[in-house]
């Protein structure tokens, strides 16, 4: 059985999305959560590029991937800045320490 390049890319997409989702579920560190988000976005980018390649519209796939890269970078920068601020204010990066409501 030979796998086509598109199928190989789809396996990579599923793997990256699954690993990123697992990281989102188990991580309590804010910066680690941003890392998991980045991994998921890499999976989405690979899917866009592979779909563009398979359909013969690689330019369209590239233009969409560019938009995703810009949005992903903004999300990463804002997440890191928020993490640094929370560390300065609360002294911890643990998401469980963020809860200030008691009840």
């Amino acid at each position: 059985m030979t796998l086509s390049p598109f199928t190989i890319a789809l396996i990579g997409v599923i793997g990256l999305l699954g690993i990123g989702f697992y990281g989102l579920m188990i991580s309590r560190n804010l910066i680690k959560i941003v890392v998991a988000l980045q991994i998921m976005v890499k999976g989405a980018l690979l899917g866009l590029v592979a779909a563009g390649n398979a359909n013969g519209q690689i330019g369209l796939g590239q233009s969409m991937a560019l938009t995703v890269i810009v949005a992903d970078t903004i999300v990463a920068v804002m997440g890191i800045a928020l993490g640094v601020q929370i560390r300065r204010r609360l002294g911890s990066l643990d998401v469980r320490d963020l809860s200030s409501l008691r009840g």
Partner: peptide, 27 residues
């Protein structure tokens, strides 16, 4: 590298400079 092999040359360059460069430096 994968993007380049799938023909997305521009995205490959931007991913290498932004994803592997800028975001790593920020981290």
């Amino acid at each position: 590298v994968l993007f380049y092999s799938y023909g997305a040359h521009l995205v490959a360059v931007i991913e290498l400079s932004v994803g592997a460069g800028l975001v790593t430096v920020l981290f």
